[in-house]
Amino acid sequence: MKRRGFIKNFVRYMAVLVSGTIPYFLSYLLAPSVKATPQTRIPLPGALADIDEFNQACIRCGACGEVCPPQCIQFRDYDGRHSLNTPYINPENKGCILCGKCMEVCPTDALSVTPITKVRMGIAQIDRAACYPWVDKGICGACVSACPLHSKAIKFDFANIYRPVIQKGCVGCGQCVEVCPHPSLAIRIVEPTQSTVTTHKASASGQRALPF
């Protein structure tokens, strides 16, 4: 009898424990994570928005790489998209300094001269579960000090002056990714349409990010 009661109790406690996790799953379903894959191959500043159009227009001369002062422009190997030898920037390696030399030197319409606030290479996204100030593991601000667009693109949070928040003016140059001291890179460049800037802004101004 004793053993039977023990098994019964064990099953009951386990059921309670498992049912206790249901709210967590519910909250997870209600606030799905944004499927923004971090980009390691971002387009050049002033590039044509459509990657296929860019591949058509680029004549693979490599002139953009030859004028780039920080030498951040690299060239693709074959990846099945007819983009052999076209340029890209890997912000985890080196970010763009938005000097505009590649736009000037490009002989085709693949890169057109654009003012740096109108450039759309991507948008930065901060992982708030990793970033040191956001998890209260110290003060950093490396991304804010590295940003070439200053307060237009990234600012410290109003409530907590060490927490960086991305603004709408971010062009995705990747300077912040290059300097981020976190081993897993708490800040990444994602495609501009996949940004979570609005939700970030909502939480920064005191509203709740979750719908309930």
């Binding site: 004549i59 693979r60 001369c61 490599g62 002139a63 030859e66 004028v67 030399k101 030197v105 002989p107």
Partner: peptide, 12 residues
């Protein structure tokens, strides 16, 4: 030094 750049494919 930007005055001489590129290759014979396209250059400045």
């Amino acid at each position: 030094l930007d005055n001489i750049k590129g290759t014979t494919w396209t250059g400045t």
